[in-house]
Design a protein around this nucleic acid. Structure first.
Lengths: 184, 184
DNA sequence: CCTAACATACCAACCGGTCTGTATGCCATG
DNA sequence: CATGGCATACAGACCGGTTGGTATGTTAGG
């Protein structure tokens, strides 16, 4: 992998796990064996530019993954279960957040940096758009489809946060039990 | 107000708005016109001890507020609407998070500090317990009551995060439209 | 030989935390 | 009732370490 992608890849993981401020440049640099010169060569505006690059990268990844899962199931209901299963699996094996969530970044940066806020917003919008599209093919009106899509993202993201505090995957499992009722 | 309470009060607001790492001790100190000596007199273990004091204070406040709202409405359905209304009102008037949410702290600290994680966990547990109790009086079984309580906290917390990224109260409003369906 | 891609030494600013100093109030004793 | 002693509640200078960021040097490929 080229240096730039390597940096984005490593930084993304660290940011998701520990948040933006908590992770120092030196920590990122050491983790991927790259020097400061290289970082500032590829990201002249430093740490925040790297973060935005991470968020954009995340957008590609998440969009792709969710889309393939969704395409592989006949209705949003089944697809949601599959997505939650994957989230739970990731959390149980890796022990940290790896997947479709980046709450740590949102909550500490949204009020502080406008460019970062916009990048996060675009990401969420994307996810909701995918859900909404599938819900429309399920037969929902476009209005209730986008409402439900928001409801989905919100509860998943919230459950993720509860999992973090409880050090358990139970919240996601509970959500998995209750979300299907939304589609009836 | 005495110095200690003043510090907790000020720090709570700052932590909720900007997160833990983002807010420096000097910023807090300046905001409430208190010196470092005073801080380390009341909180010998420094910043993290202050944060935990904030979370415990938040627990009292949130518990009390939610409980009075819940007591003032006949079912969980109505109470939830009232709570969301208040959340929306706060967000619109203050422009920042003030209320029942502390996602910023959770997501950046849960994986880093065990005492902080426990404090956050206790807080969420408390909230869910209040919801669940009301749901039981509504006629739900204790199992589905606690499931629904989790669902409530998760989706509200998630919607809050979406509000933050969108700089809008729409996500909370959408949630308000959809949550009632859960109770049927 | 020139430019992209680094490497490395360095920097000021800031961080959380500690240190010593001091004003003030209480309280027991002579 | 004055006084010494001691604890509480600060104030503010100071500290080492780390932060993000920069400036300059080196190297390899076209």
């Amino acid at each position: 992998m080229d240096t730039k992608s390597l940096m984005i890849h490593t930084a993304t993981a660290l940011f998701q796990q520990k948040g933006y401020k908590t992770v120092g440049l030196n920590e990122i640099l050491k983790a991927c064996n790259v020097t400061k010169g290289a970082l500032y060569h590829h990201f002249p505006n430093g740490k925040e530019e790297l973060l935005i690059a991470c968020l954009n990268g995340l957008k590609e990844t998440i969009t792709a993954e969710i889309e393939t899962i969704i395409r592989g199931h006949k209705s949003t209901k089944e697809a949601t279960q599959a997505i939650l299963d994957k989230l739970i699996y990731n959390l149980e094996t890796e022990g940290t957040i790896t997947g479709y969530t980046f709450s740590s970044i949102v909550s500490e940066m949204a009020t502080v940096s406008e460019p970062v806020r916009r990048a996060c917003s675009a990401l969420y919008e994307n996810i909701q758009h995918i859900y909404a599209a599938k819900l429309v093919t399920d037969g929902f009106s476009s209005e209730s489809a986008s409402d439900l899509a928001l409801m989905l993202t919100a509860s998943i993201e919230g459950a993720m946060m509860l999992c973090l505090t409880q050090k358990s995957t139970d919240p996601l499992k509970t959500i998995a039990k209750r979300l299907p009722h939304l589609f009836e």
